[in-house]
Amino acid sequence: MNIFRLSGDVCHLVAIIILFLKIWRSKSCAGISGKSQLLFALVFTTRYLDLFTAFISIYNTVMKVVFLVLAYATVSLIYFRFRKSYDSESDSFRVEFLLVPVAGLSFLENYSFTPLEILWTFSIYLESVAILPQLFMITKTGEAESITTHYLFFLGLYRTLYLANWVWRYHEEGFFDQIAVVSGVVQTIFYCDFFYLYFTRVLRGSGKMTLP
C-alpha cells in the first residue's frame, strides 16, 4: 500500500458518499445517470467475487463491502425510492455499446482463461467506460449541478491518483499490471475534458456547470 493508492481509495469513497448523500438529502436523482450507477454496481460485483475466497487485508475486505453496499444502495435510490425524479429521457446512452465490446475484449485479452479472471478483466474494462453515460447525460442536458461535478471531480481524482500509484509500484516494486494500467489510462483520459470545465467554471464560483 502507498499514499497514492490509499488517497485514491479515499477519494473514491468520498465520491460515492457525495453522490449517495446528494440523492438521499435532495430526495431526487435529477441529473444523475442511473445507467452509470448500474454499471459501477456491475463493476464491483464482477470484481469483488473473491471477497469470500481470497483474504488480502481487513482494509481490502471492508472497502469492498462498503463499495458494494453503497453502489447498490445508490442504484436502489435511483430506480426505486426516487424513481419519479429519474430523468430517463436524458439518460439515453446505449450501454449495450459498452457491454458487448467490454465483454468481448475480456474474453480475448486476459491473464488467464478462468471464470474469476475473465470476470475481473471484464470489471476492469467496464470501469473505464462506466462514467460515459453520466458524462453523456451532462452534455445532453447542457448542465450539471455543482454537487454532481464534485462527485465527478473526486472520481477523476481517484483515477489520477491510481496512475500515480502504478508509477510508484513500478518504481518501488517493479509491479506492472498491464490490463489495469492501460484501462486506467483510458478511463482517466475521459475525465480530462470534465476537469477542464470543472476548473474553469465550477471552481470560478459559477455554481452549476453549464456547457458551452
Binding site: 493508492r5 481509495d9 473514491h12 473473491d50 481470497a54 488480502i56 487485508s57 481490502n60 472497502m63 469492498k64 463499495f67 491473464y111 488467464s112 478462468t114 479472471e117 475481473w120 491510481y162 500509484n165 509491479f175 499490471d177 489495469a180
Partner: peptide
Amino acid sequence: EDDTLPKDEL
C-alpha cells in the same frame, strides 16, 4: 498459461 497477478488493489 496462467500469469495472473495479485489482486490486492480495489
